[in-house]
């Protein structure tokens, strides 16, 4: 029984801590990360299109590439924590670093958007 003591699932650890089974909450969260990644990729297309309209081609290409990379990071982070939260059960579950990065990327997007808007 305790031969796999270090391999206990998140559910087993949660039960020890008095938590109820998480059900599909983990899946819902992974899907939310996927939606966020798609949103970031879509915003990248919109920014690039607006930048080309404003004759800011270099800015358009740079933001499209940056936001495509960001979308890939968001998507892969969602997949990574989905696996981590299911198997390792490593507390704490929260991930402020990723949320901060996403916030910084969104604020940068807003700044570029204002620049492009004024230039059109």
């Amino acid at each position: 029984m305790s031969a796999r003591g270090s391999q206990r699932s998140a559910a087993e650890r949660g039960a020890e801590a008095g938590h109820k089974p998480p059900g599909l909450a983990r899946d819902r969260t992974a899907l939310a990360w996927t939606r966020s990644a798609l949103n970031m990729a879509g915003s990248g297309v919109l920014i690039a299109r607006a930048a080309f309209t404003a004759n800011l081609d270099a800015l358009g290409v740079a933001s499209a590439i940056a936001m495509a990379i960001m979308a890939l990071l968001i998507w892969s982070h969602g997949q990574t924590i989905y696996r981590q939260r299911g198997v390792a059960g490593t507390f704490p579950y929260h991930q402020p670093g990723a949320l901060r990065l996403l916030t910084v990327a969104t604020v940068l997007t807003a700044m570029v958007a204002i620049l492009v808007t004024v230039a059109i």
């Binding site: 109820k20 998480p22 909450a25 983990r26 939310a32 579950y93 929260h94 916030t103």
Partner: peptide
């Protein structure tokens, strides 16, 4: 409870 942590994270993502 992890469900609360996950729900908080989903709320942040929805706002984002």
């Amino acid at each position: 409870d992890p469900r609360n942590t996950f729900a908080n994270e989903r709320t942040f993502l929805a706002w984002n």
